[in-house]
């Protein structure tokens, strides 16, 4: 699971060479909207060369290819589908598009004898996609779903607002589908990179509806996104105490026990275990001071 996915423009060498330093859980190298029509070839070749140069980066790498309604997507896939990447981010994805992408991926993977099985993150950015969310989530190789609020609002002929009422429904529906299939529910990026308070509020809304991650369009948004989507120090403390008590109970051969007057059973222990796992993964455990 991830908390953040950072968009990196595919034709920008200065950003690409620093893609691994910003601390994003995943990056999405963008061949689509961030690259002008005339530079599609240059971006493709640059990203391919970049992927050949890296060795065990600390973050997951996804590539946003051009839509299946363009003439670029096949060349994109030919260039970037390698063992270096974790998945493809597919714009304007409907079930039929993902199915086509799956076929293309099988073909490339077998032709190039790849080790890895490439994942897919569909972008939900049309009314039709919203209606297909559950079907999309159920398809094979789907690692998460990304909400694209700008295009979706255009399709719905709605104005984007700072409160985000217009995307409450797709956010919630996506959250349920992703939870059901144990995949990442990734919120739409917050487009005003200078408004940090707005970003905090937007992250909290998404989190309250059950999304577990947010896309970032600028590295400076990552700190805030991580603050919101990481387990809080209080939750980590609680989880630690639950697990400690569980161990004690286990040692004493007790099945059920109580902590702070509340009964602790298996689901609660599982929840605590999950919190500790993500705390470890995101290096959030407080420093044991010297």
């Amino acid at each position: 699971m991830v908390r953040s996915m950072l968009f990196i423009p595919g034709n920008n060498p200065a950003m690409l060479q620093n893609a691994d330093v910003f601390g994003a859980d995943a990056v999405i190298i963008d061949l689509e909207d961030a690259v002008s029509i005339q530079e599609k070839d240059a971006a493709r070749i640059l990203v391919k060369a970049y992927l050949e140069s890296i060795d065990h980066p600390p973050m997951k790498i996804y590539i946003r290819i051009n839509g299946l309604d363009t003439t670029d997507y096949e060349k994109d896939l030919q260039s970037v589908v390698t063992d270096q990447i974790d998945g493809i981010v597919l714009p304007k994805a409907k079930v039929c598009d993902v199915e086509r992408l799956l076929t293309l991926l099988y073909k490339i993977e077998s032709e190039t004898h790849m080790q890895k099985i490439i994942g897919i993150i569909p972008i939900v950015e049309s009314a039709k996609s919203v209606l297909e969310i559950e079907k999309l989530a159920a398809l094979s190789r789907i690692q998460g779903m990304l909400l694209g609020a700008e295009d979706l609002s255009a399709d719905m002929e709605l104005m984007r607002t700072i409160t985000g009422t217009e995307i409450e429904y797709p956010r919630a529906r996506m959250a349920f589908a992703c939870k059901a299939y144990k995949i990442d529910a990734i919120d739409t990026p917050f487009t005003d990179t200078s408004d940090n308070l707005g970003l905090i509020a937007d992250c909290q809304k998404a989190q309250n509806l059950g999304l577990n991650a947010k896309a970032a369009i600028h590295p400076n948004q990552l700190e805030t996104i991580h603050d919101v989507f990481s387990p809080s120090l209080q939750r980590i403390e609680w989880a630690k105490r639950v697990l400690k008590a569980a161990k004690k109970a286990d040692d004493q051969g007790l099945g059920v026990f109580s902590l702070d007057g509340k009964m602790i059973d298996k689901p609660i222990i599982e929840r605590a275990t999950k919190i500790m796992e993500s705390a470890k993964r995101y290096r959030l455990l407080p420093v044991e001071n010297a």
């Binding site: 620093n18 330093v21 910003f22 601390g23 600028h218 590295p219 400076n220």
Partner: peptide, 11 residues
């Protein structure tokens, strides 16, 4: 600085 690399270093 607005440079994200510079800001990361500062943080």
């Amino acid at each position: 600085t607005k440079d994200p690399v510079g800001l990361k270093i500062a943080r």
